[in-house]
Structures are given as C-alpha cells and as structure tokens.
Design a protein around this nucleic acid. Structure first.
Lengths: 130, 130
DNA sequence: CAGCATCCACGCGGATACTG
DNA sequence: CAGTATCCGCGTGGATGCTG
C-alpha cells in the first residue's frame, strides 16, 4: 500500500511543497533540536521517565521536552505509559515504528560524527576569506 | 583525527547543546526545508544550474534557494562553479563530502517514503480522540 | 513527579521588486 | 541568468512560575 520505492527525486521535487504524506514530516522532525536525541536515548536505555530525560539532556527546558515528546508520540514513534500512582509516574518507550527509524538515524549520526569536523573547517575557511 | 565511533548517546546528550562540532549542524541542515531536495537532485543529475533548481523545485523562492545553496556550499557539501560569461552561468555539483552524505540521507528518505503514511495515520487518530 | 501557562526573542521561510 | 534587497508573519525554542 505504501510506496515501496522512491520514484525519482525529480518527481519528488515537484510535489514536495504540497504532499500531505510527504517525507518532509520526517525530515522536519529530524531537524527539530532535540527529537533525535530523545529517540536515540530511548534506543539506548529502553525505558526513560520524564525527569530522567530532563536530567540526561543538558540545556533542554521542560516545556520543550514536553513538546518534543508529544510530537514524537503523535507521530507514533514513541509510546507514553502512565501509571496511576501518586506521585505520578510516566514511562516512555520506542514503538516499532520508532525503532525502525533509529536505524537510518544512527547511520546519519555516525556519518555526522565522522564528518562534522570537516564541515566546521569548511565554514571557518569561508569566514577567513571574508 | 575525527571521532571514529560514537561514544554513547548519553554522553552526546550532555554536550549536545554546546559542542561546536556537534552533529546538530548536520541534523539542522537536514531539517531545513529544501536542503536535502537540493542535495538529492544533485546526486540524481550530477550538475545543475541555478534556474534549473528553480524550475525543478516547485514552490521554492529565489531567495530561499540562494540561501540553501549558500549554506550547503559553506558546509562543503556542494561546489559552485562560475563561468565568466555573459549572461552568467553557474553550475552546482556535489563535493566528495556531499556525496558521502547522500547515502545515509537516501536511507532516511527510503524509510520516510515507506512510513510517512503510518505517521500521518497516527496523527489523524490522535485528532479523532480530541 | 510530570507536566501546563505565559511571555518573549529570534530566525526561517515566503512574497515582491530590483540588478550586474 | 543568477542572483540581491527589503519587508513580514509565524513558529520554534527558551525562561520563568505554577499545579494536580
């Protein structure tokens, strides 16, 4: 039912700005500042609670963490389990869909770790020219 | 010289907000609306001129296209060749670095094409609940 | 503990018009 | 042809304080 194979990028470029089921959804989520960190942390730890994210991720605010988790949950990438206890307890885990996304994302992160220095150097040499 | 292997995501999460050579550079670039389309079009066509991008990509403005190309060039992902002729002629090609990035990005795009429908459905079912 | 409410600055992306 | 210049709306991300 889903498109098995990508047609051509040339075709994609024609409908990229309109399509509802566009890959833009995925690329945008990836570009969000903290989404992939959350996804990868879940992959590494299996189950993580809200305040654990808050502790583990340096520099994130509660509001942004909350938004990030909601967005990932809305996309069906993570699962939110609430325990009816006091004080509250909420656990986040990856869904199958989310687990599937981890693989290509890790490939990307691997590449980025290897080459981010090249990119930084490229930027610096541009600045020197100016 | 570069970090060969990723430590742990847990470590990454600690410096994600500060590091200069962060993978954030890459993830941000990927999240930019048109960057990956440009990159993949170059991979598909080899050499592309400015107005060809403008024609091929539906909905992009000249300013945004210009910015996108500049950013990719600054990162050393694409190369800009200017021919000193009238009227002007400028050709864009992938650098080796850019070519290297294409592989993980295609993996991501493949995944996205297969699963973007799942994500859209997930979002819709959330809306129904509300 | 796991959030929500509010306010705010900034920058991206878009529209339009102009130029070497 | 291959851009620049200008203006603008909107959404993201951040800071702070409050709550069931």
């Amino acid at each position: 039912m889903n498109t098995e194979k990508i047609f051509t990028i040339t075709d994609l470029a024609k409908c990229y700005n309109k399509s509802e089921r566009s890959i833009r959804i995925v690329l945008e989520r990836i570009g969000e500042k903290w989404s992939m960190i959350v996804l990868l942390l879940l992959d590494e730890h299996g189950t993580v609670r809200f305040h654990e994210f808050d502790n583990m991720i340096d520099g994130i605010s509660q509001k942004v963490l909350s938004n990030t988790l909601k967005a990932l949950e809305a996309d069906g990438l993570i699962h939110r389990k609430v325990y009816p206890v006091v004080p509250p307890k909420v656990e986040y885990t990856l869904t199958d869909l989310g687990r599937g996304l981890v693989t290509p994302v890790r490939a990307l992160v691997d590449w980025a770790c290897k080459h981010s220095l090249d990119i930084v150097e490229s930027r610096k040499s541009l600045i020197k020219q100016a």
